[in-house]
Every structure is written in C-alpha cells, then in structure tokens.
Write a protein that binds this DNA or RNA. Structure first.
Lengths: 138, 138
DNA sequence: TGGCAAATGTAGCAATGGCTACGGATAGTG
DNA sequence: CACTATCCGTAGCCATTGCTACATTTGCCA
C-alpha cells in the first residue's frame, strides 16, 4: 500500500505565476513611488531602482501593459492605469504596515527595510490584520 | 540635472538566483519531512507534495544533486547529502519559528501555515531573532 | 518467468526574468 | 538646424520552472 503524501494545504501554487504576480506588485509600487518622488517614471528609473538592465524593465513593462496595470508609449514615461493605481495603493499600504510591524518588533532599520520587501508579498489578509492589531496595541 | 534614484538598500538582489535558492530550501525541507514521514522520498512524493509534475521535480532534483544538496541515482529514492541535511535543519527550524510566531500573533492556523511558507524565505537573522524574543516573552 | 502497472527519465515547448550588443528616437545645446 | 548624449527598443542568448508526450526501468504478482 502507499501512504498518501500530505499535500500542502494550498501553497506552492505554481511558483512561476506567483513570482510573476510579485513582480507586478513590485513594479506598480515602484512606479507610484518614482512618480511621487520625481514627477515621472522612466524605464531607466525603474532599471536603477531594481538594479537590473533597462532591457529587463522594458520587457516587464510591456507585459504589465498587456495586463492593463501600466500605461506607456514608446520612448514615453510609464504611468499607472486605474487598475495599476489601485493595486499600487494596496501594495504600498501593506508594505508600510509590514515595515512598521518589523520595526515595532525590534528589528533594526536596515534589516526591516530589506526583509519587509520580501515578506510583504506573502502576507495574507489574516496576517496583515494580526500585524495591525499588534501595532494598535502600542 | 537629474535626480538620483533612491537605489534599493540592497534587496532585489537578482530575482532569478534568489528564487533558485528558495526552491533549494523548499526541496531539502520537503525531502527531510518526507523521509521522516514515510522512510524514503521518491520523485513522485515530491511531485505530490508541491503539486507539480514529476518532470519538474526530476529536473530540480538533478540541479540540487549537482549543487550537492541531494543525493540520488536513477530510479532510486532521493536522499540528503550532509550539506543538504544541514540546510534542511536550518530551514525547518526557521520555518517552525515563523509558524509559531504567526500563531502567537493571532493568525488562524490555516493562514499561518500558508503565510509561513512564503514568509520564511525572507526572514533574515535579525528578524528571526526578533521573532524568537517575541515568543520567549509569552 | 512473463507481463503489466507504476515510477522515472528524456525530448521538446512556453513563460518569465536575467544579460550583451546593437540600432533608432528624443531632447538639449551650440 | 545639426550634433551628441541619453534613453529606449529589438534581437538573441541563458537559466529556471511549468507542461505534455513518449520511452525506459523497476518491481510485483500471476
């Protein structure tokens, strides 16, 4: 007979598409921040932001354009569509909460910044609420 | 003049290699768990565990074999090398701490399980220590 | 032992995200 | 207006992680 393998409750939901979503979140968040900081967001701004080549950015921007998260035209700045704007707001909020949470937990600034970048994508609504409750109690 | 773009403190450290490391961590952890649960770990066990095809597992196992994390022979079970064993222990410990932490924070079991899977890879030593301190205070 | 079912492996395709090299567009400046 | 520097796009390469389809190996049972 063969033992059933404890299948994951849910996770490991196709690594590739999960990563693609994370990229989308990172990009809309970056676009929003860059526009706030300097008025517009160019491909090269994103390349410097993420420390990748402009080619990589260009391809990803094209994909997110097709997903209607970003709007852009050749040689023009990158902008957020309404859909992208709403996602960006959500992501920025979540990111800020995770960062505050780590700081309040006692993590030093440098590490809190770094870890919050990675962690934010994996914080579901339930965990996010728990973090909010924790922050309120202080 | 042109504004300097606030380059990320460090993160976004080449997404591809980062993802490859996460995969390695997930796999050695899974191999250790499967061996504990049923005595041996086959390719198909991993495929069921991660909900992917056996082909995907087979290729990744080959890569991790080359990285000396796993040991295997054609049509034989997958085992951990000493290097893989030590990584697996580290990952399992970290995973357990993150899970306990989320539960203690008030996240329900189902979501704590799911989120801990994603979060664990992004918890640096500093954040891990903060979580340990939090757990001790309870 | 023969044969079949299950487990693995291999071939080959797609999507994503890295890269370099090269060429075209834009914009600022003399 | 023309030039040049910067910005951006395209071509084409690699690695990783998905997949289906097909081939091979193993192991068990009649």
């Amino acid at each position: 007979m063969k033992d059933k393998i404890k299948a994951r409750s849910v996770p490991f939901s196709q690594t590739r598409s999960r990563h693609a979503s994370e990229t989308a979140e990172d990009y809309v968040e970056a676009v929003m921040e860059l526009i706030e900081e300097k008025g517009e967001c160019r491909v090269l701004d994103l390349a410097r932001y993420f420390n990748v080549s402009h080619v990589t950015v260009s391809r990803i921007v094209k994909r997110l354009y097709e997903e209607e998260l970003l709007y852009t035209q050749p040689y023009k700045p990158v902008e957020l569509t309404p859909k992208g704007n709403s996602l960006a707001k959500k992501v920025k909020e979540r990111h800020a909460i995770v960062l505050d949470f780590l700081l309040e937990l006692g993590v030093d600034k440098a590490n809190a910044y770094i870890d919050s970048e990675g962690i934010e994508h994996h914080v579901g609504p339930s965990t996010l609420n728990a973090m909010k409750r924790f922050l309120k109690k202080r």
